[in-house]
Simulated scan of single mutants.
Amino acid sequence: MTIKNILLAHTGSAGFPHSLRHAVKVAKRHEAWLTGIYGGPSSYFDQVLGLTEDLHDKLKTVRAAKIEGSRELFQQEVEAAGIENRARFLMPEVIGKLSLAEIARNFDFIVTGYPPKLPTDEYRAVSPDVMALQSGRPVLVVPDDYISEGLANHVLVAWDGKRASARALSDAMTVLEDAPKKVSILTVGDVLHEMPTGTDIVTHLERHGIQAEHILRPKAGRKIAEIIETTASEIGAQLIVMGAYEHSKFSQDLFGGVTHHVIRTAKVPVFMSH
Rank of each mutant, 00 (worst) to 15 (best):
V155M: 06
R163Q: 13
V270S: 02
A9H: 02
P92M: 07
P92G: 02
E53F: 14
V111L: 09
I37R: 08
E229Q: 08
A104R: 04
V188I: 12
E77M: 10
E194F: 13
V155A: 14
V155D: 09
D57I: 01
E206D: 14
I3F: 00
G161D: 14
T199Q: 10
A225Q: 06
V188S: 11
D160G: 02
K223W: 01
N153H: 06
T197E: 08
P180K: 01
G136M: 05
S148V: 05
V141T: 10
A80G: 03
V94W: 15
I37V: 11
I227D: 10
L20G: 06
A101N: 06
V241Y: 10
H18F: 15
I228W: 08
A244G: 12
H261L: 14
G256F: 12
F45H: 09
V78E: 03
E149H: 07
M131K: 05
V270Y: 04
E234V: 06
R222M: 03
E246L: 08
E177T: 04
P143H: 11
A81Q: 01
G82T: 00
A125F: 07
A64M: 03
T174N: 00
D190R: 06
L118F: 15
A81R: 00
P92C: 05
T203C: 04
A158R: 01
P269G: 04
L49T: 04
S170P: 07
V94P: 00
A225K: 03
A65W: 15
Q76S: 09
V241N: 03
E93W: 13
L151S: 01
G150C: 09
P128H: 05
S70L: 06
E31K: 02
Q76A: 09
R63A: 09
A172R: 03
Y44L: 09
P41G: 05
V24W: 00
L59T: 00
E213L: 08
H214F: 15
S42T: 13
L59W: 07
V141A: 03
S233C: 07
A81S: 07
T2S: 07
Y245E: 14
H10N: 14
Q252D: 14
S251H: 11
G36W: 01
K58G: 08
D200P: 09
R137M: 14
H274C: 10
D46W: 01
L216S: 11
E68Q: 06
A64T: 02
R105G: 15
L186T: 00
G96R: 11
E229Y: 06
S273V: 15
V262F: 05
A232E: 03
F74W: 02
V268Y: 08
I201Y: 14
H261K: 03
T61C: 13
A14T: 08
